[in-house]
Design a protein around this nucleic acid. Structure first.
Lengths: 354, 354
DNA sequence: AGCAAACCCCAAATCGATTTGTCGCCCGGC
DNA sequence: GCCGGGCGACAAATCGATTTGGGGTTTGCT
């Protein structure tokens, strides 16, 4: 390492010397030449699409080995119109939910000879559309789309072009788009019912920015209604899905009705629930003693926070695997019909927080 | 959604109907035909590599618009030998450190017209080598390699082929491979020194599986030596980087010398530190009252656990951005010289745990 | 021996772009 | 009036594979 030039993090690299004469990769023609056959034959021993005599095959194999030949994927893709690559479009790979989902897709594709091309949209519609075009231009064989709004992102375009699309979360009603969903509504319903079982005096909810996560809100309100209760509008506040946002939301709830703080809070995701717990601790309140808290997603952090979070399991990995499988079933030609929906369960996970 | 077929998660999709006649994409020839020019000219208005008359250009643009033409990336790559795609090879995208790093790379590349192809190796040498070949076959323009052991993963191959490689973490001494590093050794040294400042009776360390993370171990031992102390070998135990592994390691430490538990523990990463805190709590010990704990990485969870973790900041995002920049500087031709090293600081972050 | 059916292999077209050499045209200068 | 030069467009080669029609040789059967 001593020989390397060391740069300060921001330093601009200097202009350098000319690059070495790159030894270009060996092509199928060179293999053919060495084996004394035509490129056609080499291709056939590689693909097995036509019979090749035993001896010839051996010679070709030998030539391939000695030359270290590896087929050029790009050229192959151009001819076959298959890139053996699928695209995963998510808001942010940094979000544990999406990174786990991505891993699920990758694992489902592993061994199927498909690679993954990943795009971060930050939930921005423009970027979603741009990336969708990008992956189509690149000839992706399939797309897993975790978009805020699949329709306006232009999910119809690839589907119409014959490129399979699997939507995650709210899908859309296209005859050829598959979708894997969880039942946010009933998950939220169960979580809320669990909170209500302690018969709290007042219950609150921290929701996501409208209109996203509407299902989680309606599950909550349905449970409240089913318990013959009403909910104070001052106790329905909005956060931005982050820990900080949850903390702020909890703070506004705590100051909304002086002297009458809620004793149960359902949060539309775990990060906001963790933020809510932050705010409660800051306010000198205990969880679950003074206030019961429940979240949604069951990310790793749910068992790291203290007290461990009661939450609804959002099976990110399974969602990814299912999405990958749906894609593979279409890519392999095993299935080629109308859009399917795979609903995944999202059971309540009761822990200490509520 | 009612119209969709709903499948149970494991159900096998049935055989379907024939696929619609796919309308193939519009090519540069169709554009040329409509505009009444040759494909050459279309290419030139697109790339701007040669002058095209004002009127002609207008006509071509018009044709492109009405046809909705988008260049085929695959064909372009074949001819230009540039895929405008870089590969990111990491152990596991699910690990927050690597997902954040990946995002950093993607952001550094954003606007530079490069896409990202992501591979999960699980730290398995075979998979690292396989993916390295895969991305070369796919014609990746550059590679960010976060491998356990870059050399045996075959990082030399792409470098020799003229494909830029940036290594993250321990690099290797190839004249044309860039590397971005943090100073694990001194980070660990500082963290350990901080723990020693409380003058604990006994200090322990939970390290990663040898030989990985050796730098963090040596920083620890150096600090111990500098304080004129020695360390009981029974207090150097190994975990597998996970929370569970950290918990188990802490447990063996606690039972190693009955009646003489250590009162300070340095963990080679945050997840294991969190596990250690789990074990300490289970044993009825308080943090930092009975035992001070420090970790390494400063992942999000470090501020979620209670008490908040004293740790060493591992700037995953900045590492990714730096790696992306190094790559871009080579891809753009701005730099083409010997291998560079970008060292990033990893300051101590003091919180409540130690 | 004669003939058809396998059996192997190859030449050439193709995928959709980029790149380069060339050619025609028009303009201005001597 | 002739020539040099710049401009603008095109034809054809190229990237590295796959695909397909067809041709030559061998095998098998009567």
């Amino acid at each position: 390492m001593a020989a390397k030039r060391t740069l300060s993090p921001g330093a601009a690299p200097a202009h350098g010397a000319a690059r070495l004469p790159e030894q270009s990769r060996v092509t199928i023609n060179q293999v053919a030449a060495l084996a004394g056959v035509s490129p056609t034959t080499v291709s056939h021993v590689l693909s097995g699409k036509r019979l090749v005599a035993e001896d010839t095959r051996g010679a070709v194999r030998e030539a391939i080995r000695t030359l270290g030949y590896r087929p050029n994927h790009v050229a192959r893709s151009l001819r076959t119109r298959r890139s053996h690559m699928i695209a995963i479009i998510v808001p942010d790979i940094t979000n544990p939910f999406y990174s786990v989902l991505t891993r699920g897709v990758a694992d489902a594709l592993d061994g199927q000879d498909y690679g993954t091309y990943v795009c971060n949209t930050d939930g921005i519609l423009d970027r979603e559309a741009t990336f969708l075009d990008d992956v189509l231009d690149r000839g992706a064989d399939g797309i897993v789309l975790a978009a805020i709004d699949a329709a306006s992102a232009g999910a119809l375009k690839p589907a119409d072009m014959g490129v399979p699309v699997v939507c995650v979360g709210r899908g859309l009603d296209h005859p050829r788009i598959d979708v894997v969903t969880i039942d946010d509504e009933s998950g939220s319903y169960e979580a809320t019912r669990h909170l209500l079982a302690r018969d709290p005096d007042r219950i609150a909810m921290i929701q996501g920015p409208s209109p996203y996560g509407a299902q989680r809100v309606s599950g909550f309100t349905r449970a409240v209604a089913d318990a013959d209760r009403t909910i104070d509008p001052a106790y329905m506040v909005t956060g931005d899905w982050t820990r900080h946002g949850g903390s702020e939301a909890m703070h506004t709830i705590l100051t909304a009705r002086p002297g009458k703080t809620p004793d149960a809070v359902f949060c539309a995701n775990d990060l906001m629930a963790i933020g809510a717990i932050d705010a409660l601790r800051d306010a000198g309140l205990t969880v679950p003693g003074d206030v019961a808290v429940a979240g949604f997603d069951d990310v790793d952090a749910a068992t790291i926070v203290h007290p461990p979070l009661t939450t609804v399991l959002n099976p990110a990995y399974d969602i990814g695997v299912s999405a990958g499988r749906l894609l593979v079933s279409r890519l392999s030609g095993e299935y080629d019909g109308e859009g399917r929906e795979v609903p995944l369960p999202c059971p309540l996970v009761v822990r200490a927080s509520g």
